[in-house]
């Protein structure tokens, strides 16, 4: 329990997807123009993470690992397998959102199918794959069970959501400021994110 809590807090603040490993930057920069849409995308990303990471965890430990059902080490197939799972689940989420929330569907537009190629999703699965081998007694990053994988996915998703909503709020205010012309738009956004990342650096070393 203690380990799960520590893993959760770490994955939100210390190992934040955006500020510590720059994952999911493309949609992060493109969608963060207003708070409402960003919140929707953040929720969608969190949801897709919550489904894909545990599924990929099971695939990794039960099928691909050396002691899995095939009895041989098939880890070299993991890229192809993970991306197929992610693309399939994204398709599913897209259909669900279209059915139950047409406004959100309209607002997210092209970005919903693009979650499939969102590095945050693939990145979370690949980090999870690395962390399986860590020792849970010495490292608070280790993922030793399916429960840990769910906790990690939730933490990573919430961290991403937090980051995109914060940036969107800043950008909404920034629309009224007088930024030098060549720096407008993308340039200043990068510098803002850089400053936010510096602020998040003070969480490093945080442990429970």
């Amino acid at each position: 329990m203690e380990h799960a809590l520590s893993l959760f807090v770490r994955s939100i603040f210390v190992d934040n997807m955006i500020f510590a490993s720059f994952l999911g930057m493309c949609s992060y920069l493109a969608v963060s123009k207003n708070v409402k849409t960003s919140f929707g995308l953040g929720v969608a990303v969190t949801f897709v993470l919550l489904v894909t990471v545990p599924v990929d965890y099971l695939l990794q430990t039960k099928v691909l690992a050396a002691d899995g059902i095939f009895g041989t080490d098939l880890t070299y197939l993991s890229f192809i397998l993970f991306i197929a799972v992610i693309a399939g689940i994204t398709q599913l989420v897209e259909m669900v959102v279209e059915r139950f929330s047409p406004t959100l569907y309209g607002a997210l537009g092209i970005f919903l199918p693009l979650i499939a190629v969102n590095c945050a999703i693939m990145g979370a699965s690949l980090f999870m794959q690395q962390r399986i081998e860590m020792d849970p007694n010495t490292s608070s990053q280790a993922i030793g069970s399916l429960g840990d994988a769910v906790v990690y996915a939730l933490g990573a998703g919430i961290g991403w959501l937090l980051a995109i909503v914060a940036l969107a709020a800043i950008r909404e205010k920034m629309a009224y400021t007088d930024v030098p012309k060549p720096l407008r738009g993308l340039g200043i956004t990068f510098i803002t994110v850089g400053l936010m990342a510096m602020a998040f650096m003070c969480f490093s070393g945080l442990s429970l």
Binding site: F19, A20, S21, F22, L183, L186, G187, I188, T189, F190, I191, V193, G194, L195, A197, M198, M201
Partner: peptide
């Protein structure tokens, strides 16, 4: 990591 963003900016 933070400086990468600022340099790219």
């Amino acid at each position: 990591p933070a400086m990468a963003l600022i340099i790219l900016g």
